[in-house]
Write a protein that binds this DNA or RNA. Structure first.
Lengths: 130, 130
DNA sequence: ATGACTGCAAAGACTTTGCATCTTT
DNA sequence: AAAGATGCAAAGTCTTTGCAGTCAT
């Protein structure tokens, strides 16, 4: 078990939660997932820590799905699939993020590219069969 | 000049505005751009019509930049660059959206892909030189 | 008359922030 | 004592909605 000082229990729980799930959760999803083990955790704490992790490069935001920000503990570039029906977010590790395109982008737009994000949209397996 | 019936003046103005700009504007940006010629246009009307155009496939949303939804009159798939400093959104027409990857995605995730979005993030020309 | 578009203000949804409290050093 | 983390409630921001008024058929 974890024996982190009480001061960091919530923060650690939030990061662990994000690392152990495949759901690419929102703040509220994390809050819901943590309530069984941390009944008194506040949604504000989840938001605050997610912002802190993000600012420190420990997690990454996928952007918003239906107006709700979704997070990913995997900070390595990878491709996502988003179900437009149930808002599920899946990793697509089989697909490579095109690497060389960044240079082309820099040359053609006169900009400095730091990252690139490739996302597919459609219906996930369950939603396609309904 | 346009001689649309009064009933559709605002709606047409919003679509024209979006078609004539390269800024990939938000609802509020459109509202600001239209106020000189339509001093009484309401932000609610902009939001309502953008939702309507989107639902009818006439425009497309890029997703949110800093929590604000941005729109594009170009519904053809194309690549975007987003400046993380000034929130500018640029088209990258020189870069091709990878086409065959959708099939790979479908096979690997058991999903039905409808579209794909490739976006680069970084600093635009002006922001890089500041 | 009926249906459609709009402005205004109110409501809604998601996120951030202020403040008091508690913990660690 | 000082710095940091948290809960709670309030505030903030972007977006949607209800309603009355106007326009077109």
């Amino acid at each position: 078990m974890e024996s982190s000082p009480k001061q960091f229990q919530k923060r650690n729980a939030i990061l662990d939660c994000l690392r152990q799930t495949e759901r690419h959760p929102s703040a509220e999803m994390i809050h819901d997932m943590l309530r069984p083990t941390h009944p008194d955790i506040s949604l504000a704490t989840v938001y605050r820590n997610l912002a802190w992790f993000k600012a420190n490069g420990m997690i990454r935001s996928l952007g918003t799905v239906n107006g709700i920000e979704r997070f990913d503990a995997n900070t390595q570039p990878h491709v996502h699939f988003i179900c437009t029906c149930c808002d599920a977010v899946l990793d697509l590790p089989q697909i490579e993020v095109p690497r060389n395109l960044g240079d082309t982008a820099e040359r053609s737009a006169g900009c400095r590219v730091k990252e690139c994000q490739l996302t597919f949209f459609g219906l996930c397996g369950s939603c396609a069969n309904s």
